[in-house]
């Protein structure tokens, strides 16, 4: 996997800070797992979080806070947190999806236009998350997701090309609403990508915007 397109520093910082939102976190996490360069940047931004926590001025805790915590430690004994949740990789159309989608509901493809299928991903803890899988045929244009905020697109398989260059598996497109771009899937095969749109935009309007250029409604 040769990665050439990375998220912006601001996106990586908010991912490390845990303030980016559930959908975008899944898309950025997919890239970070595949990209040593961004994994290192995330560690740096986590260290920045540590420094910020260290410099945050203290707020007094209630007098018995420590005693209560010690009592809880006594009550639960030496139990270790079980950190392992190894489960099967998620596969769609023979293509392995990023592990950051574990726990999400992956629904069936829906035809939304010639050569274009979409599946809205169910993010269990965030019903309003605008996270979608897109499968677009060779030579087809990706539908306009109707940017209202930042849009993050991770390439799972295949490739597309737009004004920013060619995007291949592992790459992420991190573009805000001012970037004019029209990705066209490369001719040698279909392209599956995972996209999140930031903000509280309702899905209905998202579908509407996606269908608009296709049906001219």
């Amino acid at each position: 996997m040769t990665i050439t397109h990375h998220p912006t520093d601001e996106t990586l910082m908010r991912y490390a800070a845990g303030t980016i939102g559930a959908g975008p976190a899944i898309v950025v996490g997919a890239h970070v797992s595949a990209c040593p360069h961004c994994a290192e940047a995330v560690r740096t931004f986590e260290a920045l979080g540590g420094a910020i926590l260290e410099q945050t001025e203290p707020t007094a805790l209630s007098a018995d806070a420590l005693a209560k915590t010690l009592a809880r430690i006594d009550a639960e004994g030496k139990r270790e947190a079980s950190g392992d949740n190894h489960s099967q990789p998620i596969v769609i159309d023979g293509v392995r999806l990023p592990d950051t989608l574990k726990g999400c509901e992956i629904r069936r493809w829906r035809w939304i236009g010639p050569g274009i299928h979409m599946s809205r991903v169910g993010v269990p803890h965030d019903p309003e998350a605008n996270l979608i899988l897109l499968k677009v045929g060779p030579g087809r244009a990706l539908p306009d997701h109707g940017h209202v905020g930042t849009e993050l697109t991770y390439i799972v398989s295949g490739s597309y090309t737009d004004a920013l260059g060619q995007f291949t598996p592992g790459d992420i497109a991190d573009v805000d609403e001012h970037v004019e771009h029209q990705p066209i899937v490369d001719r040698d095969g279909e392209c599956i990508c995972l996209a999140a749109v930031e903000g509280k935009m309702r899905f209905n309007s998202l579908i509407g915007r996606m269908l608009q250029p296709i049906f001219g409604i």
Partner: peptide, 29 residues
């Protein structure tokens, strides 16, 4: 989503390899 039970939060994906020593990174930030 109040129906959700408290869970062990998902950790950020494990890193591939450390390029910098923690102390150095800390000093830098």
């Amino acid at each position: 989503d109040p129906s959700l039970l408290p869970s062990d939060p998902v950790d950020v994906p494990p890193s591939i390899e450390d390029e910098l020593l923690a102390a150095e990174r800390d000093e830098n930030v």
